[in-house]
Nucleic acid binder design. Structure first.
Length: 290
DNA sequence: ATGCCATACGTTGTATGA
């Protein structure tokens, strides 16, 4: 079984690219973030043509999460099971993330899939940063309440946290910014410590592997990036994890790419014949980056 | 080489991203 996550940076703008990638990677389940669509505008038909059911949770202009599955979608829950409500006040920003479409869960062939798009945080110690940490508290509580360590569960998406220094291009340059602060890293580890494994890191100990690169200044081709998108697998799935990769090809070329690349894991068996090609391409990139 | 920002909303600019 192949599960992938991808911050698509607008599913409307990226639809052709996403369709291309579904054919390329053939994931059984794809978690998407930043669809930037209202539910009424979700491209259900395009996914159906490609053989996928689509569950979408969005507000419109910002955020938005979705799960596409070609092996069924049941038990869909959005926004931690609460109604999506607008914030009472946007003065502080503190309560904004609770009103934003950042969480969607569904059952796909016996695996609980949780798709998340964590708040950005903007600047350390800003109200948005505090709100980001509160959002992680909410996620941790929800995970604790709704799953046990023995369930088959994958929590994936854009966490907007680089868990360790090896997950950023330059820890010194990043120091003091969001995504790398101690409190954000503790929030990430708290989720993991419930009984999950960072699937990519479990397969790849090496530094220099990222899922996001700024559009500006040629950062992608200089490999100036961060590993902030993750797939966390529950303990019962850990030993069934056979392969994981970040598909840099999807960050290139035309039509215009997202600033994030898809992250892929295979459970039980490797997915597709061209996996060997991915592996060799990644080896060349890693060699050049060091 | 994969190349110097892109998205939505809206209108000649603003908010957001990480």
């Amino acid at each position: 079984m192949r599960i992938a996550t991808w911050n698509v940076n607008s599913l409307k703008a990226r639809l052709d690219k996403v369709m291309w990638w579904l054919d390329r990677a053939k994931p059984d389940v794809l978690l998407m973030q930043e669809t930037k669509l209202a539910d009424a505008d979700a491209p259900v038909e395009a996914f159906s043509q490609a053989g996928y059911e689509l569950a979408h949770h969005g507000e419109g202009r910002w955020n938005g999460v979705a799960i596409a599955s070609r092996c069924g979608i049941r038990g869909v829950i959005s926004n931690f099971g609460e109604p999506l409500r607008r914030a009472q006040s946007s003065e502080s920003g503190d309560d904004e993330p609770q009103a934003e479409a950042r969480m969607l869960a569904a059952d796909c062939v016996g695996i609980r899939i949780v798709c998340i798009y964590a708040p950005n945080g903007r600047a350390v110690n800003s109200p948005y940063y505090e709100a980001k940490l509160l959002w992680f508290d909410k996620l941790a509580r929800w995970i604790n309440q709704t799953s046990s360590p023995q369930t088959f569960c994958v929590i994936g998406g854009d966490f907007n946290v680089a868990p360790q220094d090896i997950d950023v291009w330059d820890p010194v340059a990043c120091h003091g910014g969001t995504h790398v602060s101690d409190r954000e890293r503790r929030a990430f580890e708290r989720i993991v410590s419930v009984g999950f494994v960072d699937a990519y890191r479990a397969q790849h100990p090496e530094p220099g592997r990222y899922t996001w690169w700024d559009y500006r200044a040629g950062n992608f081709h200089k490999n100036i990036g961060m590993r902030i998108d993750h797939l966390l697998v529950s303990t019962p799935l850990r030993d069934r994890l056979v392969w994981s990769e970040i598909d840099r090809e999807a960050r290139k070329g035309k039509p215009l790419p997202s600033d994030h690349a898809p992250l892929v894991i295979d459970i039980d068996s490797p997915g597709h014949p061209f996996d060997a090609g991915w592996a060799s391409a990644e080896s060349r990139i890693a060699a050049r980056g060091r």
